[in-house]
Amino acid sequence: MAKNVRIMNCRPDDVFRVLGDAWLYPAWVVGASRMRDVDEAWPQRGAELHHSVGVWPFLLDDTTVVEDWSPPNRMVMRARGWPIGEARVTLRVRSYGHRCMVRIDEEPVSGPATLLPGLVTTPLLCWRNSETLHRLAYLAEGRAE
């Protein structure tokens, strides 16, 4: 399982405002290139966002579904990225003085990626999620109240 942590100059509510706006997903998730549709129930449990992964002309349409939405502390999503597979992504947010600490955990849960050893997948996911948290910080800090 890949684990990344970042201290952000904002409050947990600021982070959850970004997470609650599914149309911002491609702005902070590395690999997501565009949004196609979002369930009206987003970000409630079971709601889906429909996105594309990759770069044109090599785009794959896929979905991400909310498994748990517990602001301002936790969000769990199941992200699809076929043909690679699916991953469970958990975001944990907690106050850290006048800032917040955001942790993202990602693990492959189905598909070919589960057959690869963690020695291969973990460094790649950590590298990607470091940039993902960097982008999330820009959005949350920029929108901080």
Rank of each mutant, 00 (worst) to 15 (best):
M1S: 10
M1I: 06
A2E: 03
A2D: 03
K3Y: 03
K3L: 05
V5H: 08
I7Q: 11
M8H: 01
M8D: 00
N9L: 13
N9C: 11
P12M: 10
P12N: 06
P12S: 06
F16H: 00
R17I: 02
R17E: 05
R17D: 06
R17F: 00
L19M: 01
G20D: 04
G20W: 01
G20I: 02
A22C: 00
L24H: 00
Y25H: 07
Y25L: 14
Y25K: 04
A27L: 08
A27I: 01
W28S: 06
W28C: 07
W28T: 07
V30Q: 10
A32E: 08
S33V: 03
S33N: 14
R34I: 00
D39I: 03
A41P: 09
A41K: 05
A41D: 13
W42R: 03
Q44M: 12
Q44D: 14
E48H: 15
L49W: 03
L49N: 05
H50R: 11
H50Y: 14
H51P: 01
H51I: 14
H51Q: 14
S52F: 00
V53N: 03
G54F: 05
P57I: 14
P57C: 14
F58A: 15
L59Y: 11
L59C: 10
L60F: 11
D62I: 02
T63S: 13
T63F: 01
T64G: 11
T64Y: 04
V65G: 05
D68A: 15
S70E: 14
S70N: 12
P72C: 09
N73R: 13
R74K: 15
R74L: 15
M77H: 02
A79W: 09
A79R: 06
W82H: 12
W82V: 06
W82L: 10
W82E: 14
P83Y: 12
P83K: 13
E86G: 09
E86Q: 15
E86P: 11
T90E: 15
R92M: 12
V93S: 04
S95T: 06
H98F: 03
R99W: 12
R99G: 05
V102W: 07
V102G: 08
R103K: 07
R103F: 03
I104F: 03
I104V: 14
E106G: 06
E107D: 12
P108L: 07
V109R: 02
S110L: 11
S110P: 13
S110W: 04
A113N: 04
T114A: 07
L116W: 05
P117V: 05
P117F: 04
L119Y: 07
V120E: 01
V120H: 03
T122E: 09
C126Y: 03
W127I: 04
W127A: 04
N129T: 09
S130V: 02
E131A: 05
T132D: 01
T132F: 03
T132Y: 02
R135K: 11
L136Y: 08
A137L: 02
E141D: 07
E141V: 14
G142V: 13
A144C: 11
E145H: 11
